[in-house]
Design a protein around this nucleic acid. Structure first.
Length: 462
RNA sequence: GUAGAUGUAGCUCAGUUGGUUAGAGCAUCGGUUUGUGGUACCGAGGGUCGAGGGUUCGAGCCCCUUCAUUUACCCCA
């Protein structure tokens, strides 16, 4: 049988893992620096926990898990199962008889569920970080995987926009350390609600935001066409035009919005929030990222209610969003705990990796196949055991050491092993070294070698 | 779902208007070299040409069907 893995999934070899861990470490360090504590949640959630939170499209992308042991069902239940299966073939339909579990789609909803279940034990505002894979039943493409890691940091139980500010500061620091030039776009769902209100099209808010969101790709005419196809009135489209044309500095955009949204309470609230962030950006001393107000930013997830974030690399040809996030005022409400507002961001490690790979942003130090410092080469059975005890001494001194575990006809094979694993030193042990209680230390890069006592060997490698 | 591209050795790919025994590089193994790798040279093994059907004296190449991979749309990290 020819081996394969499900599409949209990947194996990561040692070389890739070194680079991935480099990214994870930077993000994790920054999460902790800002006071977030780690949690993990199960791979599977009850499907009812997930459905209805990600929008219509999102719900379709949830990986469902077939209930186990359905073949052991009683006959009358089997009849019901057959009916349910046929129904699910004909329309989008969730049958808990068939699937009551699903793989997590993101980390935010499981987090909200966790908060509600552990409400009594948490200290608010509760700040948590979570680094785990998520699954989406998407068609894989460039930069789009069916299994990928998210690195989330969320604060729940605080309305303060200071949380948003600190999240921006954390993005700045993280992307600076990763050396990725990034443009962080932000917007506010309240602005979008305000716009829909002004246009008398509150029921069409999703259609409108999705259309505006495509401005980059399809241009102004394309957006207008899309709006028309969604049965937005001509009058509303005319009203909307100044916003489609919106450009210039963040401040210039705000002043246009102020006029446009003057008669919308929710819109004015959104502007207030945006102004708070803009005027206080200076106090967090951003050095690396570009922060830009973009009213075409919509984001598909249903649960966002306030600030929304998205970050993209600002150079290279591969520029999908590598971070997303926002404020959700009542995600816990669905699980029965009202009045807890949360805000968070999510780094997409897999795309960050792709971007860094394209732009060659990994430091030389992570481009190693192995962290072994010395390989002990043997010339026979007795020498091999001498190597084993020697390795123990090296490791006791904190030196990464490997023993070549076989006795092979050609010693060159052992050197080849060291060479392929890019191990910088080789310790050769033959009968001479054994009688002298020494080791021949060879520096692979230069080919130089010298005979050393065990103590001198440890010192030389330290 | 819709549209395009691609499936040939373990990997990356050549393969002419259809013509004898399907090739290369890398990788693997062996040798030049029984106390020394990365270089060089010599040699070896490895293929139901994605699958099924058709056209033809003859198909890796043309036609049909099907499967897989991949890119774009939609949506998203």
């Amino acid at each position: 049988m020819k081996p394969s893995i499900p599409r949209g999934t990947r194996d990561f070899g040692p070389a890739e893992m070194q680079k991935r861990q480099y990214i994870f470490n930077i993000i994790k360090t920054n999460f902790q620096l800002f006071g977030y504590a780690p949690i993990e949640t199960p791979t599977m959630e009850n499907i009812t926990t997930l459905t209805g939170k990600y929008g219509e499209e999102g719900d379709q992308l949830i990986f469902k898990v077939l209930n186990s042991r359905i073949h052991e069902s009683k006959d009358d239940k089997k009849e019901l199962l057959k009916k349910e299966f046929i129904t699910s073939l004909e329309k989008s339909y969730n049958s808990e008889l068939l699937t009551e579990k699903a793989l997590r789609y993101d980390l935010t909803v499981p987090f909200a569920r966790y908060v509600v279940m552990n409400h009594h034990a948490l200290t608010y505002p509760f700040k948590r970080y979570q680094i785990q894979p998520v699954w989406r039943a998407d068609k894989p493409q460039k930069g789009r995987y069916r299994e990928f890691y998210q690195c989330d940091a969320d604060v729940i139980g605080s309305d303060s926009l200071v949380n948003e500010l600190e999240l921006i500061a954390m993005m700045d620091k993280s992307f600076a350390e990763l050396k990725i030039l990034v443009i962080v776009k932000f917007n506010n769902r309240k602005i979008l609600s305000g716009i829909a209100e002004i246009l008398n099209a509150s029921d069409k808010i999703i259609d409108i935001t999705v259309a505006i969101d495509k401005l980059d790709k399809i241009g102004k005419d394309g957006v207008i066409k899309e709006l028309q196809s969604k049965e937005i009135s001509a009058e509303a489209i005319t009203k909307l035009e100044p916003l489609i044309d919106l450009s210039g500095t963040n401040d210039a955009k705000v002043s246009v919005l102020k006029t446009f949204l003057a008669s919308s309470e929710i819109g004015k609230k959104g502007i207030e929030e945006i102004e708070f962030l803009l005027t206080n950006l200076s106090s967090i001393n951003i050095k690396h990222i570009n922060v830009e107000l973009d009213i075409t930013l919509a984001r598909g997830l249903n649960y966002y209610t306030g600030t929304i974030f998205e970050a993209k690399a600002d150079s290279g040809t591969f520029t999908p969003s590598i971070l997303g996030g926002g404020r959700y005022d009542d995600l816990t409400g669905i699980f029965g705990l009202k009045g807890l507002s949360g805000v968070g961001i999510s780094f997409g490690v897999d795309r960050i990796y792709d971007v860094m790979e394209e732009l060659n942003l990994f430091p030389e130090s992570v481009n190693k196949v192995s962290t072994t410092k010395i390989l002990l080469v043997n010339f026979g059975e007795a020498e091999l055991m001498y190597c084993v005890s020697l390795a123990a001494k090296l490791r006791a001194a904190g030196i990464n050491a490997e023993v070549y575990p076989d006795v092979v006809k050609k010693v060159s094979k052992q050197f080849e092993y060291a060479d392929k694993k890019q191990i910088p030193y080789v310790g050769v042990v033959g009968s001479n070294e054994m009688t002298n209680k020494t080791i021949m230390l060879k520096t692979m890069a230069t080919g130089e070698q010298q005979e050393l006592s065990v103590e001198n060997l440890v010192n030389a490698l330290k």
